[in-house]
Structure formats: C-alpha cells, structure tokens
C-alpha cells in the first residue's frame, strides 16, 4: 500500500517511509551540511551520483524528472554567468580577461561546475527527504527534537495547505482565463499585474479560511493541556540510532577532512592536482 506524503505517494515499504523521524531529519540536515562543507569537485560529483541513485534504491518516485533537470540547468546557468563575468580565480590557463578586471581561467570553470554540483546535491538530498515526509513525520520529528508541538503543526499546516492553495490558485487563474485574460502575453510587468489579481483573490480566500480553521482548532482543544500526549508510539530502534550516529559521524568526518586535512577543499581530490 502506498503512503500519501505532502507531495506524492511513496511505496509504503520504502525504507525511508519506515524510518523514524529522528534519523530522517538528521539525514536532511546532514546532506545539506556535507554538501556545504565539501568544496572538491570529484567528492561532490560522487555525492550527487549517490543521492540520485538512492531515489531508485529507496523506491522514491523522482517527481517530474524532466522538470527537475530543466530547473538544474536554469540554476546552473545563473551560477555560470555569475562566475564567468565576475570572478578572478587563478588557474593554469586564462582564457579571457574583462576590462573590469575579472577573468575566466580553467579553475573558474571547475569552481563553477563544483558550485553547480553542490547546489544539485542539496536539491536532490532535500527532495529525497521531503518527498517522503508526512505531517506525522514533522509532528513526531519535532517531538523527538523536543520542539514545541505548535512549531510542528505550523510547518505541517504550511506544507499541507500549499497543495490546497495551489488548487485555489489554478481555479482563480482559470476563472480569469474564462473571462478573456491571457497570461502568456505581455511583458513581465504586465503579466505580474495580471497575477496580482490572482494573488489578491487568494489572500481574500485565505483570510476567510483562517477563521474556519481557527474555529476547528479551538473546537479540538488545541493548546488545551499543558502537556500534550501522543497517539502513536515511535520507538527508536537500534537501526535508527545507528543511522543517526553514522550520519552525524559523516558530517564530522567531512568537516575534519575539509578544514584540518584539506582533502575536501577546492581543488582537493582531483587526479590532475
């Protein structure tokens, strides 16, 4: 049986679905941190490949793979432009020098590629986790980290209502199209102006809706007891503890390798260096 998450359905027996929220949250944080720590191209490439493969291994559907690749390409273009036009990274070869002093060297290209991989690995890692997350994970994850339940509910509501408001947005936009609006025409400013109507309408819908949700939460005794209890019992299994500790150790290891050994620093582990 598949499990409904915030964004998709995931096989109920996927290891990530069965994982305790604590190692799951730790995994999310670790992937981000490790990607941030590593500055060497090959290890970052390996991390990216490993994360991409884990979608398959953990039986997580990669939502809209085509869109995902396009997004990575668009974002990569922004990183490239920034480095090609405005950086001065010394290298063995300088290909072009600009009048304002910036230049493009072989290391400029390598560093830009490394930054793209950093970004891609963070994107893959966080998508992997969030695609398998339910409101239950957030609530029990927050409890595992001793965070107030209100914070968990806030995050859970924000994720969940996003899908509801996306439907609202499409309805309002369709209503405008049915009255002759054309959203694919005009300059950016003109299009933004058309969308201003949609967003204004959405805020109005949300303002009406918040009172209904507030009534429901009050009726359900939200915040009534000084100490909240929990219906489900999430026991940390040994495997959960082992995974959590391994992840923390991995982050520490990456930190030491980068800042004390210099192994993961740029250009770091490169066959040619």
């Amino acid at each position: 049986m598949s499990q409904r998450t915030f964004f998709t359905y995931v096989a109920g027996d996927s290891p990530l679905v069965r994982l305790h929220p604590l190692p799951k949250v730790t995994l999310l944080l670790s992937v981000n941190l490790v990607a941030l720590i590593i500055e060497a191209p090959i290890p970052l490439l390996l991390l990216t490949i490993m994360l991409a493969l884990s979608f398959k291994l953990l039986r997580v559907p990669l939502i809209g793979l085509k869109k995902f690749v396009i997004v990575v390409l668009i974002a990569s273009q922004a990183v490239l432009i920034s480095y090609l036009l405005g950086s001065s990274i010394p290298g063995s070869q300088v290909y072009y020098t600009y009048p304002w002093g910036a230049y493009v060297s072989d290391m400029t290209l390598l560093y830009a590629a490394t930054m793209i991989m950093r970004y891609t690995s963070m994107l893959l890692g966080s998508t992997l986790i969030l695609a398998t997350t339910t409101s239950r994970d957030i609530v029990y994850g927050a409890a595992a980290f001793r965070l107030p339940h209100t914070i968990a509910l806030m995050m859970s509501l924000a994720f969940r209502t996003t899908t509801i408001f996306v439907e609202d947005f499409i309805r309002v936009r369709d209503a405008m199209i049915l009255r002759g609006a054309n959203f694919s025409e005009g300059s950016i400013l003109e299009r933004a102006r058309k969308y201003a109507n949609v967003f204004t309408s959405m805020i109005v819908i949300a303002l009406r809706r918040i009172m209904e949700i507030a009534y429901a939460l009050q009726a359900k005794g939200f915040g009534a007891a000084p100490k909240r209890t929990y219906y489900r019992e999430y026991k940390l299994r040994i495997s959960d503890v082992v995974i959590t500790l391994t992840l923390i150790a991995g982050v520490l290891c990456a930190y030491v390798l980068r800042y004390y050994v210099g192994f993961l620093a740029f250009p770091g582990w490169l066959p040619s260096v």
Binding site: R4, F6, T134, S135, R136, V139, L153, S156, L157, R160, R209, E212, I213, A216, L217, A219, K220, G221, F222, G223, A224, A225, P226, K227, R228, T229, Y230, Y231, R232, E233
Partner: peptide
C-alpha cells in the same frame, strides 16, 4: 477546513492529544 493531519486515524486522535488524554 477542519482537517489538520494526513490520516483519518490521526485526525480522530488529534483532539485527544491536545487535551493530554493518556495513550
């Protein structure tokens, strides 16, 4: 607009959790 969780069972349990009812 009254639902705050992602499963029927969690939804039914939600008010009891708020009131601190023992598990």
């Amino acid at each position: 607009t009254q639902f705050v969780t992602m499963s029927v069972e969690d939804e039914v349990a939600f008010p009891l959790e708020n009131h601190g009812v023992p598990r």
